[in-house]
Amino acid sequence: MGRIEVRICGLGGQGVVLAGQILGRAAVIDGMNVVQTQSYGAEARGSAAKSEVIVSDKQIGFPHVRKCDVLVALSQSALDAHCKDLKESGILLVDGDLVSRVPERIDQVYKLPASRVAETRFKSRMYANVVMLGALTIIAGIASKKAMKEAIEASVKRETQEANLQAFEAGLDLQA
């Protein structure tokens, strides 16, 4: 499968880092080589957040994403900052309720109502990140559904496992 570089971006508190960790863990479960990094600042919640996942069947050297194959943007400011790094053939996933302006040059754009689904189904926008991961699994096929579910179970608190798995399913359904 070669090498896939993914960047998930948004604001602190949206679960951007957790989403990257779940994706990375799932790819490891699928037997791939993975490097996951995140922007790490002293900044408080609400400031820019970024998580990157590189998945490859070969050894991974340089750990940072330079040109992404997949960009997931959970806020307008994050998209504005990062869309320049999306490859021409790259895939863009945005939360359609939080991102309105998408540059025309990008062909493959998926606008997903992730935070709306999270809010109506789970009464909390906190689940929007996992809804996006569901959609991402169908669209980009980086990790298997089974591995993604296993990774979610391993990454979230026991009390929220069930709700997160349902959020993931809801994300799968968005693209089913």
Binding site: V28, M32, N33
Partner: peptide
């Protein structure tokens, strides 16, 4: 270093 310390890998 910070990069190797904060990255996650298999």
């Amino acid at each position: 270093d910070e990069i190797v310390a904060h990255m996650r890998e298999q």
